Amino acid sequence: MDETIVVSSIIDKLPPSLKEFKRTLKHKKEDITLDELANHLRVEEDCSIQENEKEQNA
């Protein structure tokens, strides 16, 4: 299966809480690889964890 289709399918299956993140990935001008998608997801997860920690400490 073409990697572009796999990446698109994974993005489509992300939870609704990542709506803005999904939109950003879908509207990139260049296709992204599975490795790039994994990196984007790790960064998004790290940011989400940091935001949750800040909210809990506030």
Rank of each mutant, 00 (worst) to 15 (best):
9 S>N: 15
41 L>Y: 06
3 E>N: 05
3 E>F: 10
19 K>A: 15
48 S>C: 11
21 F>K: 05
2 D>P: 13
53 E>V: 10
30 E>P: 07
34 L>Y: 05
28 K>T: 11
16 P>D: 12
29 K>P: 06
32 I>M: 02
36 E>W: 00
40 H>M: 06
51 E>W: 06
54 K>Y: 10
14 L>N: 00
30 E>D: 13
21 F>T: 03
3 E>W: 08
55 E>N: 10
31 D>I: 05
57 N>V: 06
2 D>S: 07
25 L>W: 09
13 K>E: 00
58 A>D: 12
29 K>G: 08
29 K>L: 10
12 D>A: 06
49 I>Q: 07
45 E>W: 14
56 Q>T: 11
37 L>H: 08
43 V>G: 04
41 L>P: 04
11 I>R: 03
37 L>C: 08
20 E>I: 06
27 H>L: 13
42 R>K: 09
2 D>F: 07
28 K>D: 03
27 H>Y: 15
13 K>W: 02
48 S>D: 09
35 D>I: 13
36 E>K: 02
23 R>G: 01
42 R>S: 08
39 N>G: 00
40 H>S: 07
11 I>F: 06
32 I>K: 00
49 I>N: 08
50 Q>W: 13
34 L>M: 08
8 S>T: 04
50 Q>S: 12
57 N>L: 12
34 L>S: 04
53 E>W: 09
2 D>H: 08
54 K>C: 04
40 H>P: 04
47 C>N: 15
13 K>Y: 04
14 L>G: 00
6 V>L: 12
56 Q>R: 15
14 L>W: 02
